[in-house]
């Protein structure tokens, strides 16, 4: 099949960005990446993708804008509440024996799931000895995550999700309500380190008991999916846990023998003992 002009332009843009900034999008799932680039084009003052190349090469600000647009996503607290319920009931009890519990939330976006996790740990009496590392490569999303301030209009949905996830007290205990926003409590935030981390180019940074990476692998091609799953496997302690997104599975991946399913349906896995 002959490559379309648009694909040629996109390939050039991605190579330029990789060489100039080290952000390598070349192995991202192409269809959605292409759509994001085309959407970005309509808000920039360019007519063709190739016109973006000199801009992002010479203007760091422009690249920063491009980068944050490449990963604008939507997330929510306790998204897929049954998954969080299972983390509460099936995974956290098995972490109780550890004196220190490290949790890595990879691709945390604007942080909603991270605070959800902190709430779970709090309610199961584990937050005191837990530490959550929440990482993403989108600086703008991370800044929002760090602030922990969310639109008040979302609170109703989050409260519903919280209850479905087996919430033990009242969701309103965990934020300060303002007229337009809800600010997550400092006691939760104290146990979270937000940091920039690129899953493609950065390494393992600590031993983890639990890794959550939900709805990030869907953006990668098969090669990258495998590489990132290997990174998680390396990062986990023996018998550590891995939680993926609803539509992401381990069964066709390179690390499938490193893990057993806690629940295949909920995409919760546990690292097996290797001899």
């Amino acid at each position: 099949m002959i490559k379309s002009l648009l694909d040629i332009e996109i390939d050039c843009l991605l190579s330029a960005i990789t060489e100039r900034y080290g952000y390598d999008f070349r192995n991202y799932a192409r269809a959605s990446l292409k759509r994001r680039i085309q959407n970005y084009l309509t808000v920039s003052d360019c007519n063709h993708v190739s016109e973006l190349i000199p801009k992002v090469l010479h203007d760091k600000e422009c690249f920063a804008k491009f980068l944050s647009n490449m990963s604008v996503t939507v997330t929510e607290m306790f998204r897929d509440p049954l998954v969080f319920k299972s983390i509460r009931e099936d995974i956290l009890p098995k972490l109780k024996t550890y004196s220190r519990i490290n949790v890595w939330h990879a691709g945390c976006a604007t942080g909603e799931e991270v605070y959800s996790m902190a709430i779970l740990l709090e309610e199961e009496g584990l937050l005191g000895r837990a530490h959550i590392y929440a990482t993403d490569f989108n600086a703008k999303s991370l800044a929002t995550a760090k602030e922990g301030i969310y639109p008040a209009e979302n609170v109703q949905l989050y409260t519903r999700n919280y209850l479905k996830a087996g919430g033990k007290s009242s969701f309103s205990d965990y934020y300060q309500a303002n007229y337009e926003s809800a600010k997550m409590k400092d006691s939760l935030r104290e146990k979270i380190t937000f940091a920039s981390h690129n899953l493609i180019s950065d390494q393992v940074f600590a031993e983890m008991n639990l890794v959550l990476c939900r709805n990030v692998l869907i953006y990668f091609d098969k090669v990258l999916q495998d590489r990132v799953l290997e990174l998680f496997s390396d990062s986990l302690v023996s018998r550590g846990f891995l939680v993926l997104g609803d539509k992401e599975a381990i069964k066709y991946s390179i690390v499938k023998d490193d893990f057993e399913a806690v629940s295949e349906r909920l995409k919760t896995y546990r690292k097996v003992l290797h001899v």
Binding site: M1, A31, S32, R35, V72, T73, V74
Partner: peptide
């Protein structure tokens, strides 16, 4: 399609999914 996910088709005729923002208020 699955609720909550955009459904896309790659050049190699495989499915892809994304949770990018809704379009026309729809995902």
């Amino acid at each position: 399609s699955s609720p909550g996910y955009h459904l896309l088709i790659e050049q190699d005729k495989t499915f892809a999914l994304s949770i990018d923002p809704p379009e026309n208020f729809s995902i």
